[in-house]
Measured scan of single mutants.
Amino acid sequence: DWEDIVRFLRKLFELGEEVVIGDWHNHHREEIKRLIEWLEKHF
């Protein structure tokens, strides 16, 4: 279910905002944000 995936990604992203998950999070933050925005537009 796409909504569950979007919710999971958003939760992960919000957690990442508070607890910076090292370089991985910083590197992928923009991609995650773009992916969430893309999914919201399409689903």
Rank of each mutant, 00 (worst) to 15 (best):
E3P: 10
H42P: 02
L35P: 00
L9C: 02
E14M: 12
H25P: 14
E30D: 07
F8I: 13
R10Q: 13
W38P: 00
F43Q: 03
R10L: 13
N26L: 04
G16C: 05
W24K: 09
V6I: 14
W38K: 07
D1L: 14
H42L: 15
F13H: 01
E18K: 13
L12S: 01
L35D: 00
E14C: 03
L15Q: 02
G22S: 03
F13A: 03
E17D: 06
F43Y: 07
W2M: 01
V19E: 04
V19R: 04
G16S: 11
L35Y: 02
E17P: 12
F13G: 00
V19T: 06
F43G: 02
H28D: 06
V20S: 06
N26G: 10
L39W: 08
K11W: 15
R34T: 05
E40W: 15
L9Y: 01
L35K: 00
I5Q: 00
E40T: 13
D4Y: 13
W2K: 01
N26Y: 04
H42R: 11
R29A: 12
K41Y: 05
N26V: 04
E31Y: 13
L39P: 00
V6W: 15
D4Q: 07
K33V: 07
G22E: 09
D23M: 04
H42Y: 15
L12H: 00
R34Y: 08
D1I: 14
L9S: 00
K41Q: 08
D1G: 12
D4K: 14
L39I: 06
L9M: 02
L35S: 02
I36H: 02
L15D: 02
G22T: 04
E17T: 14
E3D: 11
L35A: 05
L35E: 00
L39F: 11
E31K: 14
L35I: 08
G22Q: 04
I21F: 08
G22P: 13
G22R: 03
E31V: 13
E37P: 01
F43P: 02
W38A: 05
G16V: 15
R29D: 04
V20P: 09
R10A: 09
I21V: 08
F8H: 07
L15E: 03
K41D: 08
I5E: 00
I32C: 07
F8Y: 07
L12V: 03
R7C: 07
E14P: 02
H25Q: 12
G16Y: 15
H42G: 05
I21H: 11
D4G: 06
R7Y: 03
W38V: 02
E40F: 13
D1N: 09
R10N: 13
D4V: 13
E30T: 08
E37Y: 07
D4M: 08
R7F: 04
E30P: 05
E30K: 11
R29T: 09
E14Q: 10
I36S: 02
E37S: 09
F13N: 00
D4F: 14
E40Q: 12
E3I: 08
F8V: 05
L9R: 00
E30F: 04
V20K: 12
H25S: 03
R34C: 03
I21P: 10
I36L: 05
F13P: 00
G22A: 05
W38D: 02
E17V: 15
W38Y: 05
H27R: 04
R29E: 05
R7G: 06
I21R: 10
F13L: 09
L12E: 00
E17Q: 14
V20D: 06
I21S: 10
E14D: 04
E31P: 03
E37R: 10
G22H: 12
I5M: 07
V20M: 09
I32N: 01
L9V: 02
